[in-house]
Design a protein around this nucleic acid. Structure first.
Lengths: 223, 223
DNA sequence: CTTATATTCAAATTATCGTTAGAATGATCG
DNA sequence: CGATCATTCTAACGATAATTTGAATATAAG
């Protein structure tokens, strides 16, 4: 085998990963799977697509070895093959944010109220949470919180906020986070609690971004 | 605009980056451009493809804002839009190496003589090079060395090795590197110098891998 | 076993992409 | 000006991808 054929083979393999991440739907699936394993049904519902289409895209991710699946009772559960896959998603998004103006503009339009963005650095946020100066709430579904969450964060799914208001102290500032910069759950929480007079801000980080930055998480196995 | 439409827009933008890195040829171009800016002609020659095809792929990279170009006399010179793009290439390759068995097998077959692989860690290599215990040679073309190279490395393009043998001490161990794990230049150097009795090994790192690991480089602006 | 549910498989359609080739256009250098 | 380098446009072919639809399969629950 000559050099050229060999090289073609190598780059072709890497391109398989590239192909897997060249579809918007598959990227969204990756982001969801980065929050923890999920059934095909749940994924399809979240993306508002047909189950069969979701299954096809998941198969593409599986063929590229970015995801794998197991059966759980009636359901089939998918998960990422490693944390490096979540890291790849974060990196792709960061490169896109850095270089594609259209993306930055769309993101700016998403953040309803820029003043609601917490402007502190990650380490500082961590320190404030450790001291109890702020309350960090994870507004994703409880199952995702259980898989992994930011240190000192408490679970407060956005769907349950209204009936669990008593758990939130009114005095301290609340910082909400969800799945990452593309996720709107934290915005909902900000709108909800802001209207009720709470001092609440959001951060753009999700657990993947947090981990990609080299910071520790609290995971299921830790507890 | 409803949530779904907005989200589709966001993921679509990131998918533009994914599409750009879903072609073997474009990945090879990225790797070459990570070594420094290059003309279309040089890139086409390195890939053994037609200039028009190279131009088309470079346009795709340009459209995705991963590369940009400028005119230099008769030539048009392309370069990456940032070091994060080189980092993306490294990450894609790492994920592929980690998860795709076919790639690992192909890579194993590439390394002619595993015994020729330096087994020391990056920091240790750096320390040995600093103390002068080993000689680190950069066997890429001189222009790539000039753009950025490993600390303490000296330029020794593989094409010039035979007529510059006197510059290499016979007593010390020599460590060669080139563009990264997919590059064969260091293997050529190992074969060449090994046959002449030198104690020579190679490492798989190139400057992109070195930088992605958070280690310092010597760049043109440093000097 | 039978039924309901969840998932995959297969086929078909439409669209897009990679590649090659020829010809025309621009820009630059000597 | 003529020569070189790069891009664009066109056309064409084959390959691949996204999506939808209908059939087939596997598993769990009754």
């Amino acid at each position: 085998m000559d050099k050229r054929t060999l090289k073609d083979l190598l780059y072709e393999q890497v391109a398989r990963i590239g192909k897997a991440v060249s579809s918007p739907k598959r990227l969204e699936l990756l982001e969801l799977l980065a929050q923890g394993e999920k059934t095909v049904e749940a994924l399809a519902a979240e993306l508002s697509i047909d189950i069969k289409l979701a299954s096809a895209h998941l198969k593409a991710l599986k063929d590229a070895r970015l995801a794998t699946s197991r059966r759980d009772g009636k359901y089939r559960v998918y998960r990422l093959t490693g944390s490096d896959v979540a890291g790849l998603w974060v990196m792709l998004r960061q490169v896109a944010e850095e270089h594609l103006l259209a993306l930055r503009l769309a993101l700016d339009r998403m953040v309803a109220d820029p003043a609601r963005l917490a402007s502190v650095g990650r380490e500082e946020l961590l320190e404030q949470a450790r001291r109890g100066d702020i309350i960090v709430i994870d507004v994703r579904p409880q199952a995702e919180y259980a898989t992994a969450h930011l240190p000192f964060a408490r679970s407060m799914p956005v769907a349950e906020i209204e009936k669990r208001l008593t758990e939130l102290p009114t005095g301290k500032e609340i910082v909400a986070y969800c799945r990452g910069p593309f996720c709107l759950l934290a915005d909902e929480a900000v709108a909800l609690l802001g209207a009720k007079g709470y001092r609440i801000r959001k951060i753009l980080d999700g657990v993947s971004e947090w981990q990609a930055a080299g910071l520790p998480l609290q995971t299921a196995v830790d507890e």
